[in-house]
Simulated assay, not measured.
Amino acid sequence: MSDLHTLLALHGALLIFANVLLEQGGLPIPAYPLLVVAGALAAQGQLSWPLVLAAAVAASLIADTAWYFAGRRYGARLLRTVCRVSLSQDSCIRQTQSLYLTAGPRLLLVAKFLPGAGALSTVMAGLTRAPYRVFAGYDVTGALIWAGSAVLLGVLFHPLVADILEALTQYGRMSVLFLATLLAAYVAYRVFLRWRVVRDLQAIPRLTLDELLSWQRAGRKIVLLDVRPQPEDPLPGAIPIDANAAIDKLDLGPRDADIVVYCACPNEISAALVASRLRAAGYANTWALLGGHDAWQAYREAPQSPLSSPPATEQS
Rank of each mutant, 00 (worst) to 15 (best):
R72M: 04
G12I: 11
A31P: 00
C83G: 15
A203S: 15
W49Q: 05
A302S: 09
L22C: 02
V110S: 01
A298C: 00
V261I: 09
F17E: 01
L22P: 00
L101Q: 04
A38N: 09
R106L: 14
F69M: 01
A162D: 13
L289H: 02
W215A: 15
W287A: 11
E314K: 14
A59T: 00
L109R: 07
Q230C: 10
L224G: 09
A70K: 04
G291D: 07
L156G: 05
L114G: 09
N244T: 14
A54I: 01
M124S: 10
A280L: 15
S309W: 14
S91T: 15
A103M: 13
M1G: 08
P159C: 00
D3Y: 04
L225T: 12
G25S: 01
Y68L: 05
M174H: 13
G172T: 07
N244I: 08
T6Y: 13
L153S: 02
A42T: 07
G148I: 11
S308L: 09
E23K: 01
R194I: 05
A185M: 09
S276P: 00
P240I: 12
W49G: 04
D248W: 06
D256H: 13
C83D: 15
L99V: 02
G172E: 12
G291K: 06
P30F: 08
L168C: 15
E232P: 06
S98H: 12
W146Q: 02
R190L: 03
S175G: 14
Y186H: 10
A103L: 15
P28T: 05
A119K: 01
G282S: 14
N244L: 14
R77Q: 03
Q216C: 12
P50D: 09
F69I: 12
A59W: 01
G148E: 08
A184F: 02
A257D: 08
G116S: 03
G45W: 02
V20M: 03
S48G: 05
A111L: 10
L168Y: 15
L153F: 14
L79Q: 07
G237Y: 11
S308C: 08
W296E: 02
V140F: 11
T65N: 03
A162Y: 08
L120E: 07
E314M: 13
V155Q: 13
A119N: 11
K249F: 04
P303F: 03
L61I: 08
A40T: 12
Q304G: 08
Y299R: 12
L250W: 10
G26H: 07
V37H: 06
L79D: 02
F157R: 05
A162Q: 15
G291T: 13
L165P: 04
T102L: 14
H5W: 13
G25P: 07
L207I: 14
P205Q: 12
R190M: 04
Q24F: 09
S214W: 10
R190V: 01
Q202V: 00
D3K: 03
S60M: 04
Y171G: 12
L212C: 08
P30H: 06
R173Y: 07
G104P: 04
P303L: 05
P311Y: 07
A162V: 10
D64F: 02
I222Y: 05
S308Y: 01
N244F: 14
R106N: 09
A180V: 15
L273G: 00
W146D: 04
P30D: 10
V197H: 01
Q24N: 12
L213Y: 11
V161Y: 10
A288F: 14
A117M: 12
P115K: 04
L47I: 05
A54R: 00
L120M: 15
S86V: 10
A203K: 13
G118C: 03
A246I: 06
F113H: 06
